[in-house]
Amino acid sequence: MAGALKGRAHKASGLSFLKAPLFFTFFFQAFAIPCARLLNNSWDGMNLFTGKDLVCLRGERIVFSGLDFGIDAGGVLVLVGPNGSGKSSLLRLMAGLLGPMSGTLQWNGEALTEDPEAHNGRLHYVGHLDAVKPVLSVAENLEFWSGLRAKAGEGDTGAAVLAALEAFGIGHLAAVPGRFLSAGQKRRVNLARILAAPAPLWLLDEPTTALDKRAVAGLERAIVKHRETGGMVVLSTHTDLKLDAFQALDLSDFAPKREGGWAA
């Protein structure tokens, strides 16, 4: 909702700049914006992340085509489908690591290609690799990544890093070099990374890999908290995560060579 408020404030200041009558501003805030939202227009500042008619090509093979999705603030999109159905590819498309062969991805009505850096600033991506440097300690690893995203004035990221580590139960490993971590611990470090520097959109590619039950519960708690603040999550998983009110997107529905295989 913070995004929505910002959108309105922007509108208001824009009009006062034009020296429009006050009632015009009032009209926009009280009437036009809610109406536009009812019509599901995205220009009013809703954190709406959408994809339209996406086609993904890997090598010379079409992985999926005609795929649409839309996520609102606080929404969770769970990608399901058999191996090779394009869950990871879709997440990489959403992250901007991969360009769609055709179709558009939009954030708040603006195409991602307009400003890729701004999109980078609002997303966290967790892929198959954990990006933990063996010679750096766990805390140093995280401090690098959160320092890279820190905004001006946020000098000290140490406290946020420690809190993030605690959330995944690895606070005691803060000083341990990355090379001594198990696969599950590395995954926890990677997940703690996304808590250490807040960003509205989480793209999680099979985040539960190598995690034990307690860590999975920690992830579920983190997702719930993230949603409370209006955050969005897109994740692919083969294990059952306990999530409320999520949308599921079955990628096998969009696989090619399956005429008539569309979900009715």
Binding site: L97, E117, N120, L123, G127, H128, V132, R149
Partner: peptide, 15 residues
Amino acid sequence: YEDGSLELLTLAPLS
């Protein structure tokens, strides 16, 4: 590239 840091650097909010 091998440990996945490159992906994250590509996704960092700087060019």
